[in-house]
Nucleic acid binder design. Structure first.
Length: 570
RNA sequence: CGGGACGUAGCGCAGCUUGGUAGCGCACCUCGCUUGGGACGAGGGGGCCGCAGGUUCAAAUCCUGUCGUCCCGACCA
């Protein structure tokens, strides 16, 4: 590729709209432009990267027995109504009507339509297992698109759906896909971690997310320093603490004028926040529930929602709290509360002689004990894990990290096959629902995640396997025919050797070309200037390390290949 | 959906308070000069100031509405 012909308009300045580094650099490197909020055009350089990522995915999916197909983007409402998700998906789904007034959506995911397909054409256990996948654009009308490709409204996704005859089959498929995902992200050159996750709206049982570790990630994960446990904090289990016997003191009301928050109350009464009980009220669909956690803990709404099996969950309005407790927010407590279901977190119920709101303004209760002073409907794990918690597997120390979710593997079970009546006949002629799994990879997000993880002050530092080109040849002056002849010669030779090579034949000053090369992130740069011509050597600079080498004319191809190989391994 | 901010040339911005018909840097075009990390000189092209109303002799500037974009939030009483 000749840079003089390449459509990759680079920008010196950072567009004001870009916040995260991947977004800034892709705009600056001339890789993408915005069409609308959350919707982007992928320009040639980005498309080369995306094709490489997709190629890696295809190879690994095919190796696992997957077969690629292409499903419609526009899907009829009918099949979504059958699974109940036409309503569950809510505002996040792009909806449209055809000229006859029939309803459709732009596919946010494809479980429905693929299940409908398989239902029509799979009859026998002999046709199972079946692994079908597709790579294409998906649409989700995010509340708030942000961070460029990280959370777009149109994005490229790979989805594989598996159809097995039973749970054992699903388990085998799941393990194969998990292994394939590990290979895919490793091949992309990413630093990542699979974590246990919550299955969320899609439903199903076991699920893992593949997280690219990056501080800009939207997801918080927790991992154990001792064993290989790692989980999304939404999912991470908190163990029930050991119950220690203690002297239960008499309940006592104290005046706490103007002290509303846990911090204020704890400081005012000279106790740690772990002695306090935080009582929150949630509106769960059309009911209200009270949730008690320790003062230094936070409610995990995912766990709460899963327990309640509700569709909508949000903190109750202050007026609701006032009506239930008879006090303004800040003075709520479980003691004496009627007419509301109370749930307590393990750690909260274990607090002895604790402190909580008295359900009267400017007053709190001391020496509150679960079982004596209040009786929750249930005591369970309802909070977010902290770094003070032990690893739920081995008891070791846990740490937090942030991650970008680039892939997720799900055991769906029979949720969709039952809803859509997708079944097969086994050897005995018995009809059974197909057991499903689904496995997604955010392709465009993976590209962004790769940049989040691989950039410096000068621009992108592509991992070799997904770099748009391997090598850029930069003649210092295109007006110098000796330089140009040598550059062209090297360019042709590298191409013939199978390396994806670009030559910056633009009539620009060398500084401009070097800056652009760094920005775009070619892993290896060959500079052809007077020195190279005079010495008859090939000057090579490695983008990632900045290391420079001089190679002999009869050996540089091998050397560059070796360099690229070493870069891929690290 | 709530809060904040912003829409002026491809990009980054000034001008708006104190209305008088638009400017700077980069990019782009031409010529010269230059060529090892975003040169320099000269000349040039490009904007109905997001859009629609209103006020006014006159609106980028004031008012109203609307659309778009970005950030924070939609959570811990």
């Amino acid at each position: 590729m000749r840079c003089s012909e390449m459509f990759a308009p680079t920008l010196r300045e950072v567009p004001a709209e870009a916040e995260v580094v991947s977004h800034q650099l892709m705009l600056r490197a001339g890789m993408m432009r915005k069409a609308a909020s959350g919707m982007y055009t992928y320009m040639p350089l980005a498309w080369r990267v995306l094709k490489k990522i997709m190629q890696i995915i295809r190879e690994e999916m095919d190796a696992t027995g997957g077969q690629e197909l292409l499903l419609p983007i526009v899907q009829p409402a009918e099949i979504w109504r059958e699974t109940g998700r036409w309503n569950v998906y809510g505002e996040e789904m792009f909806r449209l009507k055809d000229r006859h007034g029939r309803e459709f959506c732009l596919g946010p995911t494809h479980e429905e339509i693929i299940t409908a397909l398989v239902k029509g054409d799979v009859r026998s256990y002999r046709q199972l297992p079946l692994l079908l996948y597709q790579i294409q654009d998906k649409f989700r009308d995010e509340i708030r698109p942000r961070f460029g490709l990280m959370r777009g409204r149109e994005f490229i996704m790979k989805d594989l759906y598996s159809f097995d005859r039973d749970e054992e089959g699903l388990e085998r498929t799941y393990k194969k896909m998990y292994a394939a995902y590990t290979r895919i992200f490793r091949r992309c050159g990413l630093h990542f971690r699979p974590v246990e996750a919550d299955s969320g709206a899609i439903g199903g049982s076991a699920t893992h997310e593949f997280m690219v570790i990056a501080d800009s990630g939207e997801a918080a994960i927790v991992y154990c320093l001792n064993c290989d446990y790692a989980a999304n904090t939404e999912k991470a289990e908190c163990l029930s603490p050991e119950h220690a016997a203690a002297n239960l003191l008499a309940l006592e009301e104290v005046a706490t004028p103007g002290q509303r928050t846990i911090d204020e109350v704890a400081k005012f009464l000279h106790v740690g926040p772990e002695r306090c009980l935080k009582t929150l009220f949630y509106a769960a669909d059309d009911k209200v529930v009270g949730v008690i956690v320790r003062g230094d803990h936070e409610v995990n709404e995912i766990k709460l929602q899963n327990y309640l099996a509700c569709v909508h969950l949000a903190l109750a309005a202050p007026e609701t709290v006032q009506a239930l407790t008879g006090a303004p927010t800040g003075y709520a407590g479980p003691v004496g509360l009627k007419n509301v279901t109370l749930l307590a977190d393990y750690a909260a119920a274990a607090v002895q002689n604790g402190i909580c709101g008295a359900n009267r303004e400017h007053a709190h209760l001391m020496n509150v004990n679960s079982g004596r002073d209040y009786e929750p409907r249930a005591i369970l794990d309802l909070r977010l894990i902290t770094t003070h918690d032990p690893c739920p597997r081995c008891g070791g120390e846990v740490k937090f990290a942030r991650g970008i979710e680039v892939g997720q593997v799900f055991k769906l079970g029979t949720k969709y096959s039952k809803a859509l009546d997708c079944s097969f006949l086994d050897e005995k002629g018995q009809e059974k629902p197909i057991v499903m799994g689904c496995y997604g990879i955010g392709v465009s997000r993976t590209m962004a995640a790769a940049i989040e993880q691989n950039s410096d002050a000068n621009g992108i530092v592509w991992p070799v396997p997904i770099a748009p080109f391997h090598v850029i040849v930069v003649p210092v002056s295109v007006k110098d025919s000796a330089q140009m002849d040598m550059a062209e010669q090297i360019y042709r030779t590298l191409q013939e050797a199978g390396l994806e090579t670009a030559i910056d034949d633009r009539d620009e000053r060398p500084g401009v070309k070097f800056k652009d090369a760094d920005l775009i992130g070619y892993p290896v740069r060959v500079t052809v200037g007077n020195k190279a011509v005079a010495e008859g050597t090939v000057e090579v600079k490695v983008r990632r390390t900045g290391a420079e080498f001089k190679y002999a004319l009869d050996d540089y191809v091998r050397q560059i290949k070796e360099l690229l190989g070493n870069l891929s391994d690290s």
